[in-house]
Write a protein that binds this DNA or RNA. Sequence first.
DNA 1: GTCTATAGTGGGATAGAC
DNA 2: GTCTATCCCACTATAGAC
Lengths: 174, 174
Amino acid sequence: MAELSPRAGQIVAAARELVEAGGSDALTMRALAARLGIRAPSLYKHFPDKSAVEAGLIAVALAELAAALEGAERDGRGGLAVLGRAYRAYALAHPHLYRLMSAGPLPRDLLPAGVEERAALPLVRIVRGEAAARAVWGLAHGLVMLELDGRFPPGADIEAAWAAGMSAFATAAR
Amino acid sequence: MAELSPRAGQIVAAARELVEAGGSDALTMRALAARLGIRAPSLYKHFPDKSAVEAGLIAVALAELAAALEGAERDGRGGLAVLGRAYRAYALAHPHLYRLMSAGPLPRDLLPAGVEERAALPLVRIVRGEAAARAVWGLAHGLVMLELDGRFPPGADIEAAWAAGMSAFATAAR
DNA sequence: GTCTATAGTGGGATAGAC
DNA sequence: GTCTATCCCACTATAGAC
């Protein structure tokens, strides 16, 4: 996917505000246009369809998550627990965006090259072995989704679950 | 939630067929009625609204998953890997149902009492400590979701990821 | 690049007769 | 319990003028 035109960038930014405020369902072409002060049909001059707008949004979110993980990598001297905290923090700070970004197959053909890999790298660097890295990825994703979906009982100590999870893989970290 | 009337049970069964065949989106009141050979408005004599039908479906799925895990518990002499395999197998056998059952907050007020606990028990019995049990739950849920969402690269050895994950928690098993 | 107008589709739910 | 008839809503997308 090529660079976005300035106007397209504004549209994606507005789409982000809608999603962050009200979830993916709140992102409709009408609402998006309204937020920009234009009519829905005008959007189709900038994006072929709605999924292209969503792909632009996913690209932004993936890059942001990657940056957050890279930051944790630097600050935390490579601790797995630190990486996990950063992952969870990003997801909790942007729950709807995280959902959009991680639900369903990635529209890889609509994404800038390398974004996906970049988000995965900090984890790959710290965990020994492909299989273990994927397990940690699954653990982080699963804990985040359970938390976002309100699946834990009211008083559950979610922090402790993360600690238990990350420490189980500590021996697999470099 | 009380027992379903016989007719309500048939409706839930039909709803299940729709969901298993085409995902949650395929479950509409119109399509559901059509499958039963009646008109959509008639459904409202048996269920107050669509969410009540979904809750009935979730109750069935939860009970089935619980039964599958209990079976693995007996056969596998309490091995965590065996439990994981059973979990994954159920989710892959009923992907759309699993999604419906695990997406969003549980409608606990519409569910028969104890169903949720029953599904969790096999895991709680085998893992030492609440925190670790929740971590394993997150791991299983995350790996399943990543797989169902097609998030792993084409050639990924998902079995190996499960093995790595479950063995990381093996020391935490009783 | 934006507009108006509109097509076309689908959804949940209700009223009241039988 | 089921029907007919209907309401009201929302959505994506296109055509063609300005």
